[in-house]
Design a binder for these strands. Structure first.
Lengths: 340, 340
DNA sequence: GCTTGGCACTCGGGATCGGCGAGTGCCAAC
DNA sequence: GTTGGCACTCGCCGATCCCGAGTGCCAAGC
């Protein structure tokens, strides 16, 4: 079947190009792959593939390299997922299980991902808005200074200091603490914010101003999405692999990595926890990143995606291996979050 | 005075080289600086400076560039501190004052430093060991799971979950909370750790195992210096300025930036809060970083250095400007920490 | 009708080479 | 100690050339 062989040729081109970083010609292709046909035949197929836009020549009289469209076809139809090796799985499991707290989980994941894929890894911190309130602590730092500590189901801790106009005694604080907790523990953040807003009305008129101040600080802490934008980046040193194509590839990537908003947008397209999303080259909104691809997926306890993680690298990358690594890490992280 | 002019020549060479990135010759030197002598004279001085090891020629028949020794002399004796502009000072102040919590302060500082210096900025999180305990919170997550939250004077929060063998009721927890706080609030971490170790003995023998478990977790949290090693890195995109000398300069830097331990060692030499330390090229322990310099200083409330911050960049950098920026940021950050 | 070997052609990359010019060191004169 | 003059050095740049990998096309073969 001719069509099948054409696809086999495309697959072979992608694999060779990713491995060697050099345009691949018809001769070397038949040498390295058991296609069972002559170079001339492969040339015909290549001409057809080029016609259809899957491959291109950097210049006349050079081999072919895949286009973004070619990579896309490869990723969608030609690549089978490459399962991780046993040792790799074990390494992931043991490394992540040693994590102490949420920060540590994120840090470790990002390192892990960078090591496994040899690319730049990006891990978004779990979103605040989808997590629930585990506990609210009210502490008197001095007679009129109150420290509020908000502990979330994901292990995240937010804190705010509130300066009160008047002194307040321990009994009051204890009462406040218990009533606030009764009102919000176990609720999702958005819901908790609503419950909080209604809270001052339940108190004596005399106390309401104080309660209102505390509530305001808490609401601010729950609705402040600044921290949603936190990401950890790792494996930047892998950029050094390039060497060639500096301006085209590395500079824009370094810039993007600084801009966490951009990163989040890139990752954000991948919201489902069960699928690995691949954005190839120009497919994204950023023209400067035309030479880079993003492989990302959501993660979180259950099948609910609290946040995304993934890698950013050159379009010319090992997609099957990378996708497998991203998926594996996402699963393990989700499991850890489930237990914690 | 001849010796004076030789130093003036050195200063001019450093300034020109930093500005143009190109070896500077005798002719262009006299054109751009009011030395009041002819190129020939400058050549004589240059020969002497080269003899003494302050400058060198990349190859015969090229201009001169400063050696590490030349930069050292320049930094120590020839450069006068370049005060920041008013707008710059104001920008620093307003940006840092908008910070919400410790994390935010660090993040903002690192960005600021990167922007001001156009180099890669590194800020170490305040060391745990020198800060004091502000509050310890004990929260029951379930009947037998306890969450410990340790809040420090620097605004840092550490948390640990402890699984108890038996259930524990709220009264006990309240008692534990209050006694633990009485024992440690206001103490430095090392002291607090000691107070904690003695604590179980004050309880009934029946309660001691539980107390001991909580204490162990707290002691671990206070003495765990893992978190001392936390650093924030920013401005990596500034590395793209290089372009040339990729392998020699950028690759090792990217690698060092990944290795936080290495970074800390580099910054760590700068422990004093009042002086800005400069390490030039080969002066440090890392041979791979021979093409890079570090400008760093300590910071912290009062004159006590809780941690370090600084920048890493090519030896060929604007030392006066960079030193001024590093010092200014350190001062403002210290002030913020003082108030918070 | 696909496949294949042959063949002329293209063109980028590396090697070679010569001229240009910035910069030097030295020396004699001031 | 400073200066102008001068011969010399050597890296950079552009021009030229050649090689070889790779192509497209065509005619013959299965």
């Amino acid at each position: 079947m001719v069509e099948d062989r054409k696809l086999a040729v495309l697959r072979a081109i992608v694999e060779d190009y990713v491995a060697t970083q050099e345009p691949v010609g018809s001769k070397s292709l038949v040498d390295r792959h058991p296609l069972g046909v002559s170079p001339a035949t492969v040339r015909n197929d290549m001409a057809a593939l080029e016609e259809e836009g899957f491959i291109t020549q950097p210049h006349t009289s050079a081999g072919r390299i895949p286009t973004d469209k070619g990579y896309r076809l490869f990723v969608d139809r030609l690549s089978q997922v490459k399962p991780l090796s046993g040792p790799e799985r074990r390494a992931i499991a043991t490394l992540l299980e040693g994590a102490i707290d949420l920060d540590d989980v994120v840090q470790r994941s990002v390192r892990l991902l960078a090591q496994l894929t040899h690319q730049v890894a990006v891990v978004q911190y779990p979103t605040l808005s989808r997590s629930t309130v585990r506990h609210v602590e009210v502490v008197a730092l001095s007679a009129s200074r109150i420290l509020l500590v908000l502990i979330l189901s994901t292990g995240r801790v937010e804190q705010r200091v509130v300066e009160l106009p008047d002194d307040i005694d321990e009994t009051r604080i204890a009462e406040l603490r218990s009533r606030i907790n009764v009102a919000v523990v176990g609720q999702r953040l958005e819901v908790a914010a609503e419950s909080l807003v209604a809270l001052p009305d339940e108190f004596d008129p005399g106390q309401r101003p104080v309660v209102a101040m505390l509530v305001a600080a808490l609401v601010e802490a729950t609705t402040d999405h600044r921290s949603d934008e936190r990401v950890a980046v790792g494996g930047t040193a892998n950029l050094a692999k390039f060497g060639e194509g500096f301006d085209v590839a590395i500079r824009p990537m370094l810039e993007a990595l600084e801009e966490h908003v951009v990163l989040l947008k890139l990752l954000g397209e991948a919201t489902s926890a069960s699928t690995v999303t691949v954005r190839i080259g120009h497919e994204g909104p950023y023209r400067e990143l035309a030479a880079t691809s993003v492989v990302a997926t959501g993660y979180g306890p259950g099948d609910e995606a609290l946040a995304s993680l993934g890698i950013v690298g050159p379009t010319r990358m090992d997609y099957p291996g990378t996708m497998a690594a991203v998926r594996a890490v996402a699963r393990y992280v989700s499991r850890i979050l489930d237990e914690g």
